[in-house]
Amino acid sequence: MAELAEEAGITVRTLRFYRERKLIPPPRREGRIAWYNEHHLARLRTIGALLERGHTLGGIADLLSAFEAGRDVGELLGLQSPLLPPWSEETPVRLTPEQLADHFSRDITPENLSTSFDIGYLATDGDEFVHISRRLLDASTELVNKGIPLTAVLEAGRKIRAHADALADIFTTLIHTHLLPHDLAHTPTPTPTPTPTPEDLQRIAHTIESLRPHAKGVVEAELSMAMDRRVRAELEGRLRDRNGEQADMREEGEAEA
């Protein structure tokens, strides 16, 4: 227990308290010896990251209990709506601590784990991690393999998340302002919002579902064209710099001659 506490950067007293609250699984026992492993350490680091984000121990216990009972965290937090189909088509990925380390090697640090939890890329499920998206995991792994530090990848992910939220705001404003039933979208503020009928909800769900490919197409087209503009500008700038250096070298050679 003392070795685990030291490795996790907490006191033995805190570790005992976590055990009493059942925030970590019990150790493997051989007689009077209690053996802890990397799964316990990963759980402690997860708890530390969640505490840094402002979660209470009671809230963390609820989250971990929900994971272990097979409940969805969105359900626990009241974020899932049974009325509308999910827009996202992303597939979560379950990873053991060893598998996560295989993806990112030495870049698995408490700071990077904390950032991943903060952005929402990672969650915990028992002794395993759950990554929110197979595509995001694959892209992050490839960028790290190309030599970009995971810290920089996560910071880019945080910025992209902010821009994605802004894009989502634009699309939802368009839908709310122009496509929702008139009596639901434009009711004056002092008037109580009317309760939508099952037919209203079905129509809204169908409208949102039909717009999915168009919204994705707009974002992909704009991003592709923006990348073309930036890459072209970058290459032209480098070409100008190289031509300028060559011109300077020629002038120096002529001066020496």
Rank of each mutant, 00 (worst) to 15 (best):
L84W: 05
F129A: 07
A139H: 12
M225N: 08
L41W: 00
I47G: 04
G120V: 05
T11M: 07
H182M: 04
E75P: 00
E234S: 11
T151F: 10
L64M: 14
D107Y: 09
L180F: 09
Q246F: 13
I170S: 01
I33F: 12
A66M: 06
D183I: 00
P181W: 11
S140K: 05
T11N: 10
I204W: 08
T141N: 07
E220N: 11
G54P: 10
S210W: 01
L137I: 06
F171Y: 13
Y18W: 08
T207G: 00
E251S: 07
W87Y: 14
K22W: 00
Y121S: 04
S88E: 14
R161F: 06
P82F: 07
S210E: 11
R238T: 03
A61V: 03
S81R: 08
M249P: 00
S116G: 15
T207A: 07
D138Y: 03
A156Y: 11
R212L: 07
P26Q: 13
E245T: 08
E199Y: 02
P194N: 10
K159Y: 06
A221G: 00
L79A: 10
L4A: 07
L84E: 03
F171W: 14
L64R: 03
P192R: 08
L84N: 01
T177L: 04
L179Q: 03
G217A: 15
T14E: 13
A123W: 05
L150E: 05
N243M: 14
A5G: 00
F171G: 01
E234L: 15
R229L: 13
N243C: 02
E98G: 07
R21N: 01
I47M: 03
R19S: 07
A49M: 09
P86L: 03
A66R: 09
I108E: 01
T14Y: 02
S140H: 10
H186N: 14
W87C: 00
A139K: 13
P198N: 09
A49R: 04
M249E: 15
S116E: 08
T177R: 14
D183N: 11
R16N: 14
V218R: 04
Y121V: 08
V144R: 12
A69K: 10
D183Q: 14
M225E: 12
I175P: 01
E111N: 02
G157S: 12
P26F: 03
I119V: 13
P149F: 06
W35S: 03
L76Y: 05
A42E: 02
W87F: 11
